[in-house]
Amino acid sequence: MQVGTEQKKPYKRMNIKKVIVTVCVIFVLIPCLIALGMTVWDDKKYYLVSLGVMILSVLPLLIRFEKSGQKAREVALLSVMTALCVASRAAFYMIPQFKPTAAIIIISGVFFGAEAGFTVGACTALVSNFFFGQGPWTPWQMFAFGVVGFLAGVLFSKKGDKNPVLLLCIFGGISVMFIYGIIMDTASLLLMSSHPTLEGLFTVYATGLPFNAAHAVSTVIFLLLLSKPFLKKLCRIRNKFGIAEHVGEQ
């Protein structure tokens, strides 16, 4: 197990160029859709346009995941991580907002890289809604969890398992509180009123604050508990089956 922590090579590193291309796609396609919504539909179909924006931002990243030539082993490992997220969300179903889902998504992003982190996040939202019920919130959740995983990958996958736990915890708390929380709160406002105002937005954020804070705290707790042993386990698997060599060379 000690060998794993000594290895410097990350499991999979995201090319900076790739990140730029992905971001460009997001920043060109989405404004187009918003412009369409503003001109053709007279800026009245907020929810439909935003739903389209969510689907547009999830799709290119998933297609990138397809194109990156995943080996069967990697897909299998990622689906285990996703299954863990879903099972853990189901396990803590009774306590609202207390769930290790985001923590496991962040760990996947750190170890497997940004694209894989996004895919695990999006897949978790989709699959857990097979159990909890699909709805108009599914694309939003896919996007929100995906972004959390993606950012974890961008920021931390370079150092992989050698990242200090404290840094991961800080990132986890902030990303869940401000990225996941704000995306989901905006979604619920858009769902409820088709004429959203700034005032309404702030009220929704204010009412969502305690829930988001609870979610963030639970994520930090689970990251504290899980990140070290989890990364260690993943490293062990990597070394045992020699996955690092065949993925790292690509």
């Binding site: 990622l78 689906s79 897949c123």
Partner: peptide, 13 residues
């Protein structure tokens, strides 16, 4: 790949 992941996840849970 994504749908394979979905299938495997649904079975793994």
């Amino acid at each position: 790949s994504f749908s394979l992941m979905l299938t495997m996840t649904l079975r793994l849970v």
